[in-house]
Design a protein around this nucleic acid. Sequence first.
DNA 1: CCGCTATGTTTCACGCCTGAAATATCGCTC
DNA 2: GAGCGATATTTCAGGCGTGAAACATAGCGG
Lengths: 161, 161
Amino acid sequence: MSGAPLREKHDGALAGRDTLRLWLRLLSCTTVVEKEVKRRLSQRFGTTLPRFDVLAALDRRPEGMTLSALSRALLVSNGNVTGLAKQLGEDGLVAIEPLPGDRRASLVRLTEAGAEHFAQVSAAHHEWIDDLLGGLSRAQRSLLFDLLGALKVSIAVELEP
Amino acid sequence: MSGAPLREKHDGALAGRDTLRLWLRLLSCTTVVEKEVKRRLSQRFGTTLPRFDVLAALDRRPEGMTLSALSRALLVSNGNVTGLAKQLGEDGLVAIEPLPGDRRASLVRLTEAGAEHFAQVSAAHHEWIDDLLGGLSRAQRSLLFDLLGALKVSIAVELEP
DNA sequence: CCGCTATGTTTCACGCCTGAAATATCGCTC
DNA sequence: GAGCGATATTTCAGGCGTGAAACATAGCGG
């Protein structure tokens, strides 16, 4: 037993090279879909994925969100959200008002125009995703969904401490 | 049988909402890992993922690649590669020389310093990925790998025409 | 009430990335 | 060998995204 370069944290055997290949494949699938979605958003709606993401987050909260809550929900920086919200505000898609009871924060809400715009883009987006991922059978999708769920949890565990 | 809003391209039944959830989960897993990798690359090596990607592509081709070939391999724009290569050249990690026989193109190669640097970063990167994805069992990883392979093919089919 | 820490927001410099325009060269055809 | 479509590269404006610095306000404990 001299010098086995062992790294056996989770797996019984060495994780080895296959983990890297798995990661590259995961990244590749995501990247291809994301690029296509970006391209279509730009082409057919003259908008971008970040803007759509903001609208999608707001659509789930008709009562509005603070900028901080928004940045936490989207996993992006505060400064980033500031710019996006300002832009969407200028386009009349969101309204930014002071938050009653806390003079530091602002409340961002979808306007009616924003909600309508989002409904249209969202419907198209949904179709695109159905087309892009619909090539797998329902069973395959379900299995993939569960495996990704397990992966998500295991990553979170790895990152938590 | 009046108005079923049917969309039955691949699946026997409607793809429905689960496709979107699958996509969001896929995106989430990828994003979390990618962010963590970026963070560690910056923190521990003062470098970035795009720079690393270029070096990784070049490492597989000791004979060098043209900028165009590089941009095709990395799926990024030509202009993007121009900047990255220039930067890496200034840092002494790659060498850029004229391509014999074609005065339009340049050949980019790893320097010795670049190869050494890449070896170190690459080893760390490999470990990170093993840690982050190693929480799944070997069987789970294998299954996930295969499902993503199927997905990749099915997306390509959807996009090809 | 006073400080002090935590939180919300903005600004800024910097890096990535794209798509389009501008050049330069190739290589093929007539 | 002149023309011309294809390919290689660069430049540039513009959008995204970050982390750090600078403020303003909250809210708590003494």
